[in-house]
Design a protein around this nucleic acid. Structure first.
Lengths: 195, 195
DNA sequence: GTCTATAATACGATAGAC
DNA sequence: GTCTATCGTATTATAGAC
């Protein structure tokens, strides 16, 4: 696969995360990536929308991989997930936001204006949810219960990232990690689980 | 207070919520509100940033009021909050997004580009958190515990709104409402509460 | 595949009459 | 307070040489 193409997508991911969709210009992307504008429309004939769709998909896969890798550090889902959220808190504070990626900002910006981008965002959220759900299933939850819990987990993490980014502090995410850990421990104690 | 000024702010709130900050143009605002461009810069000499700051503040106060009104329907915090989240699920499905307002989208879009807008978003999130926290305090929680729980609650609601909007379905928010209700009921049973 | 020049359009902001 | 015309600068996208 072309390195120029990859470079463009990767640069787009970074800029989308920092600025959002409408604030990120194609000129800025080609300038930062060092690629020529002719190449951009050669690799992405449908322009900005197509490029953004690819960037969102790649970002989603990377976040999914990070989730799976992070959760593998601990056998017990409650501890694994709480620790993973704490690691996001640190990532947000060190200004390397590769935790949430451009997903949330672009999802909100384009929900009413681009069906294509809305679909890829929806798909990416599904990947994240399933990564958590599979960890919960491995921990003994039924698939149905795991999916519902995973939706809750993705929600609370996304919301926590927003509060932490807005406040320039990892504290909201750390509070979220504590509460989420408490909840999951309580759930694993009271619910019927197949071990 | 001038009606023209109010009209401009209100229109801005609606457009910001549907499209975000960078996709909403001043020309679009004056066209939809029926106000002249001369008036816009008369009432908001500092332009788009000042107008948006006012719109965010107004939106934040409205959401805060909605939260307080919604939570007043039920004495027990756990039930009150779960039911409130369910009401947001319905609001999202009926396409009248006055639940989350333009807050989240603008917060993410401007976190790295406008200190003024970042500050007003941070302030608004504080109002929402405090509204939940006061309900929890009234329900017997200590102020410190209530604030932490309220941060968690705002996070999970914001995240749930994002998932529900992206999926064009109230289901994610309803799952969130169920889980949140479970958690708050469990917390109120196990924790020491001053009644 | 790459590059440059440019078209077409929209943006935020301003000036100055009324 | 209101209105219009306009400036300067972005944007996305395209055309055509190499």
């Amino acid at each position: 696969m072309s390195s120029t193409r990859d470079q463009i997508i990767e640069t787009t991911c970074i800029l989308l995360e920092a600025q959002g969709y409408h604030a990120t210009g194609l000129n800025q992307i080609i300038a930062k990536s060092g690629s020529p504008k002719g190449s951009l429309y050669y690799y992405f004939p449908q322009g900005k929308e197509e490029l953004t769709a690819e960037a969102i998909a790649r970002s989603g896969r990377i976040v999914e991989r990070n989730i799976r890798a992070g959760l593998a550090n601990n056998k017990e889902p409650a501890e694994a997930i709480a620790n993973f959220v704490r690691s996001i808190a640190q990532a947000v504070e060190s200004s390397s936001f590769s935790a949430g990626g451009p997903l949330t900002t672009v999802a909100l910006e384009t929900v009413n204006s681009s069906e294509r981008l809305n679909l890829v965002c929806r798909e990416a959220y599904g990947w994240l949810r399933d990564a958590f759900a599979e960890k919960l299933v491995a921990g003994g939850y039924t698939p149905e219960r795991a999916t519902r819990l995973a939706t809750f987990i993705v929600s609370v993490i996304e919301g926590g990232i927003i509060l932490s980014r807005t406040n320039h502090s990892g504290d909201p995410l750390r509070h979220v990690a504590d509460e989420l850990g408490d909840y999951l421990r309580a759930a694993s104690n009271t619910e019927t689980r197949v071990q």
